[in-house]
């Protein structure tokens, strides 16, 4: 399929979870937070850029914000890179959408990660393609008799 969708219920109000995604101090609480020396740059405005780099681990991710609707919706490009001899080797840009929905005093975080390929087919067709692949791989693994 074209997109991956996940959700999580986070035990904090929407505004706090929004800040956790859109400020360096907020991100540092959870994004690669067990690693030392991770750098966080975030300019959470439409057209603003972000970069989160873990130099010791040799990886990073960067991109540009396309949609910033506080405190409910973020859409940004997603460019993963590996540091090879200290220089970034980038992958093609994906796109990520994150939505924050209040549920009492907690926040439902809905995340959608889209591959760079888009075709004329509807998103639902891509989603069914993903289910198909999962089922096929599960069946193969079951037949092979190993986990």
């Amino acid at each position: 399929m074209n997109a991956l969708e996940l959700s999580r219920l986070v035990p904090a109000p929407v505004q706090q979870v929004w800040s956790a995604w859109t400020t360096p101090a907020g991100l540092a609480r959870w994004w690669w937070h067990t690693w030392r020396g991770v750098g966080y740059d975030v300019d959470a405005r439409p057209g603003g850029e972000y970069c989160i780099e873990a130099a010791e681990q040799g990886i990073g991710v960067r991109g540009t914000f396309r949609v910033v609707e506080p405190p409910h919706r973020l859409v940004f490009s997603w460019i993963w890179y590996d540091l090879v001899d200290g220089r970034p080797v980038e992958q093609p840009a994906d796109e990520v959408e994150v939505r924050f929905v209040a549920e009492d005093d907690r926040t439902r975080v809905l995340l959608r990660h889209t591959g760079p390929w888009t075709g004329p087919e509807a998103a639902d067709d891509y989603r069914q393609g993903w289910t198909f692949v999962l089922d096929a791989l599960t069946a193969q693994v079951a037949v092979a008799g190993r986990d």
């Binding site: 991956l4 999580r8 219920l9 986070v10 035990p11 904090a12 609480r29 959870w30 994004w31």
Partner: peptide, 27 residues
């Protein structure tokens, strides 16, 4: 990542019954 996000706030809360819900892939 989402486990870490939920975990960062779980420590803020006192009391029981606030387990972050485990997520799966939505279809």
């Amino acid at each position: 990542q989402l486990d870490a996000l939920a975990g960062a706030f779980a420590g803020d809360r006192k009391g029981v019954g606030d387990d972050p819900e485990k997520a799966g892939v939505l279809e």
